[in-house]
Design a protein around this nucleic acid. Structure first.
Length: 833
RNA sequence: GCCCCGGUGGCCCAACCGGCAGAGGCAGGCCCCUUAAAAGGGUCGCAGUGCGGGUUCGAAUCCCGCCCGGGGCACCA
């Protein structure tokens, strides 16, 4: 007989169905939750310990997809677990709503990007609600709101004031398809990170953030992230920052007053430098080129400029270059070496110039081979002669052909030469970084305008805070089409303005900021979303930040996470936050794939989230995502069974329905075995969830449901108080994974909503102690007997018992005993002679 | 080429610091319930842990060398 009951407070619904029907249950609880709004931050008062749970906010492209379903399910388990544990939780949501797709959609539909953007946001918000993510909807933001980008502009100005935002002309990455410049981090394998188009170089004046000034701290502060962020992310960031230790060495150049400085990691090989190379696209190359080489050089430079990054980095490509008709002087031996321009030397790494030591650097050797330049070995590593094998030697060895360095080993030689250079003033030891400054200007419309006015009198002038936001003009359709200059430049009424300093006519900066600027500080804005007079409220920030747990995809390992760390440090230095790392722990989830491949239109293996939810219901999909395997591994949708998840939910639900005792029944008198199972499960599931082992936690929950079912059918029966205790524990724990089903169970058990705030079940330690454990007795490593022993059995007692066991005696036969390994209380291994 | 992670029943996955290889699920077989089917309940596991060696009383677990899959880095001086 099903257990019927009418709930007093919410009244209207009577649960009469006796079959698990997820559709009815979803329809019943979604409106209830809307009314209760149970996940508001701050509801537990200032004395409750706080937690900040954050998911990487979505880009509003259409509706949510399978990837969102997994990522947000994971983040939700963490947040809901914290709610159950009684923490005051901030679990906000927002949208990264500036960006190119909206612009492209607007061009196609002859509309403004806002229309498409905000329609998609509403769609996704509805889907999130239905998907039952425990968001605090009162802490919500959209980066494209003037109320948000006003503060993104404020951030820019803060950085500008400290010299951390500046403009410079240089060779920059250009995406011909998107018609905009790109940051280094947004060029992946020589192609545009967004659209895959091969990137070319252009000489342009652009805005940069001085992230390189933080290189050392970005590296050092990783110590506090060790063990709390995935190792691979830390490794990738370390590689990206790319610190290398070496020396700067000054080379005099014939016919030039100033010397040219090079960076090298191998100052010990200075005597082996046989030529000198400057980056073909550098200003230095321009300047050093002798008149009679000018024509050749210009031709070469043009050829280099046409190359895409992909071409330039092509495997096995021959080295190219031209001599500049000038010579540099090796500071240690006075040798005249020719200066070349080549594209294998990069203008923006080190000083854009190198000393080439072909014997000990493969790239220099390749170049020497192509152009017939001399090779001189200065470190004898015992390897074959590079001039014959065309393989550079880079191991340790003894210096030769190196004057005073001869006979020293590599390390000693480096120390000696650095000391000598420093003494004579021709150079010094130094660190160099691969990290470049962050190029933040974009020649596109749908982003935060750069809040700078260009005045013919005053130059670059910051827009005063009280004039923020600098709002985007209303442009639509074809006005937004990419044309190589920002669409804002065409909005002449908008561009024309007055100088905030002198009041004379001036022009607005027409670029917008990289959308990664928007997302590099949004987690700092959440606690202060209700403040329109300040970006970051100190009180709210103190209460909630930094983020305790950040969940999202590994694709942001460098870009978003590095930028966010940088901005946090900068804001720390500016006195706005009192911490230097924004995300205390980070978890990457895997991808949702199908049949071994990532889902894509061209493969035709896409799975539609909406359709899956329509077939199986929210809970079954959430549970399937979490049960599929470790969260950081990919979920292959072809390998998992949402139907199976649904069956488990129905099974759990029926257990709650079968309970016949009244709410509040004291479990003390209940079946001891089931109680022990329940308490052990609660303890174990708690620690599994904390350890991010959701798939195992779900498995334990299934075990508990199975044990409860058995107790009802063939044990103490549905009227046993332990059955109620078990069913209630299941409801509370299940609420992390399948909130609708759990809520319905909770109601069936006679409780008021919401189970989400019911509190994690208390574990009675007395119920966890086992009266006996099974000890295994092996003979020569094979199990020959099992003994029931007290958990605190002594080594001697266990040995006695084991050796007396008939099975052991039989297995031993007449062999003598060599040793007996005893590991109380679980194992004995008898080793025969 | 270098670095990191993984490989366990037909499939997805467990097995804490070396100690009974199997927790959970999917698929499948059988049984009960049913006029029947579905739903439900029960029950069934000879895979020795990618391959080869080593350490150990004992190895999925530790070490060495391979194979396969995934990821990262790769003209950064």
């Amino acid at each position: 007989m099903p257990h019927f009951r009418e709930r007093a407070s919410t009244g209207a619904t009577t649960m009469t169905e006796d079959r698990y029907d997820w559709r009815t249950i979803q329809d019943r609880w979604l409106p209830e939750w809307e009314k209760l709004d149970p996940f508001r931050a701050g509801q537990r008062g200032p004395d409750a310990e706080r937690r900040y749970a954050l998911d990487m906010f979505p880009y509003p492209s259409g509706d949510l997809h399978m990837g969102h379903a997994e990522a947000f399910a994971i983040g939700d388990v963490i947040a809901r677990h914290w709610f159950q544990q009684g923490y005051d939780v901030l679990h906000p949501i927002g949208w990264d709503s500036f960006g190119l797709p909206a612009e492209n959609a607007a061009i196609k539909r002859n509309s403004n990007p806002a229309e498409w953007t905000y329609a998609n946001i509403e769609t996704q918000a509805d889907s999130f609600r239905r998907y039952a993510i425990s968001f605090d909807w009162s802490h919500r933001l959209h980066t494209s709101d003037p109320g948000y980008y006003r503060w993104t502009q404020w951030l820019f100005l803060q950085l500008h004031e400290r010299g951390l935002a500046y403009r410079k002309a240089s060779q920059v990455n250009w995406c011909p398809k998107d018609q905009t410049v790109l940051a280094n981090e947004q060029v992946v394998g020589g192609a545009c990170e967004r659209c895959g188009t091969p990137v070319t170089k252009r000489e342009l004046t652009q805005w940069y953030f001085r992230i390189t000034q933080y290189a050392e701290r970005l590296l050092d502060d990783m110590a506090q992230l060790e063990g709390r962020w995935p190792d691979r992310v830390l490794t990738m960031q370390r590689n990206w920052i790319g610190r290398s230790r070496g020396a700067q060495v000054d080379f005099a150049v014939e016919g030039r007053d100033e010397p040219v400085t090079v960076f090298t990691t191998r100052p010990d090989t200075l005597y082996g430098a046989t030529f000198f190379v400057v980056a073909a696209d550098s200003r230095l190359a321009q300047e050093l080129c002798a008149p009679e080489r000018r024509a050749d050089f210009e031709a070469y430079r043009e050829q280099v400029g046409r190359l895409t990054e992909i071409d330039r980095l092509a495997e096995g490509r021959e080295k190219t270059g031209v001599p500049l008709g000038r010579h540099a002087i090796n500071p240690v031996n006075g040798e005249r070496i020719p200066i070349w321009a080549a594209d294998y030397v990069l203008a923006d790494y080190g000083t854009g110039a190198i000393m080439a030591v072909p014997a000990h650097d493969q790239r220099d050797l390749d170049f020497a081979r192509t152009f017939g330049l001399p090779v001189r070995v200065v470190v004898d590593t015992g390897e074959p002669d590079p001039a014959e094998t065309w393989t550079a030697t880079s191991g340790d060895g003894v210096l030769v052909n190196s004057g005073p360095l001869d006979g020293l080993r590599k390390e000693a030689a480096i120390a000696a030469i650095v000391a000598e250079l420093e003494a004579k003033g021709g150079g010094h030891g130094s660190l160099n970084y691969r990290l470049r400054d962050w190029l933040v200007s974009r020649q596109r419309y749908w982003g935060a305008p750069i809040p700078i006015v260009h005045c013919p009198v005053d130059g670059e002038v910051r827009v005063p805070d009280e004039q923020l936001p600098v709002r985007l003009p209303e442009l639509r359709g074809a006005d937004l089409a990419p044309k190589g200059v920002s669409p804002l430049a065409a909005a002449t009424d908008w561009v024309r303005t007055t100088c905030p300093r002198c009041g004379g006519p001036a022009e607005r900066d027409t670029d917008t900021m990289d959308t990664f600027v928007d997302s590099s500080w949004y987690f700092l804005r959440y606690p202060s979303v209700d403040r329109d007079d300040v970006a970051i409220d100190p009180e709210a920030t103190k209460r909630w930040a930094p983020v305790d747990s950040y969940t999202g995809g590994a694709e942001h390992a460098i870009l978003h996470l590095l930028y966010s760390r940088f901005i946090t440090k900068a804001l720390h230095d500016l006195g706005h936050v009192d911490f230097v790392e924004p995300f205390a722990t980070l978890h990457n989830q895997g991808q949702v794939i199908n049949q071994g491949k990532s889902m894509s239109k061209s493969l035709g293996n896409g799975v539609d989230l909406g359709a899956e939810l329509e077939t199986h219901g929210v809970d079954a999909i959430r549970l399937t995502m979490l049960f599929a395997g470790p969260p950081e591994e990919d979920v292959d949708w072809a390998d998992v069974s949402p139907t199976g998840s649904g069956k488990f939910l129905a099974r759990a639900w029926r257990v709650a329905r079968d309970v016949t005792t009244a709410p509040g029944t004291d479990p003390g008198a209940g079946d001891a075995a089931l109680r022990a199972t329940t308490h052990r499960a609660v303890a174990e599931i708690g620690s599994l969830v904390e350890a991010f082992r959701f798939n195992v936690a779900v498995a334990r929950l299934m075990e508990l449901v199975n044990a409860t079912r058995k107790a009802i059918d063939s044990g103490p029966g549905a009227g046993d108080p332990a059955v109620r205790e078990a069913a209630e524990a299941v409801a509370v724990m299940l609420s992390l994974f399948a909130p609708y089903c759990a809520e319905d169970m909770w109601a069936a058990l006679g409780h008021e909503p919401t189970v989400a705030l019911a509190g994690w079940p208390a574990v009675d330690p007395a119920l966890l102690v086992q009266e006996t454990v099974t000890a295994v007795v092996q003979v020569a490593g094979k199990v020959r007997a099992r003994l029931d022993v007290p958990p605190d059995v002594t080594e001697d007692a266990l040995r006695e018992l084991a050796l007396a066991d008939p099975g052991v005696v039989r297995a031993l036969g007449d062999r003598a005993i060599r040793t007996v390994v005893v590991r109380p209380p679980r194992l004995v291994n008898v080793v025969p002679a």
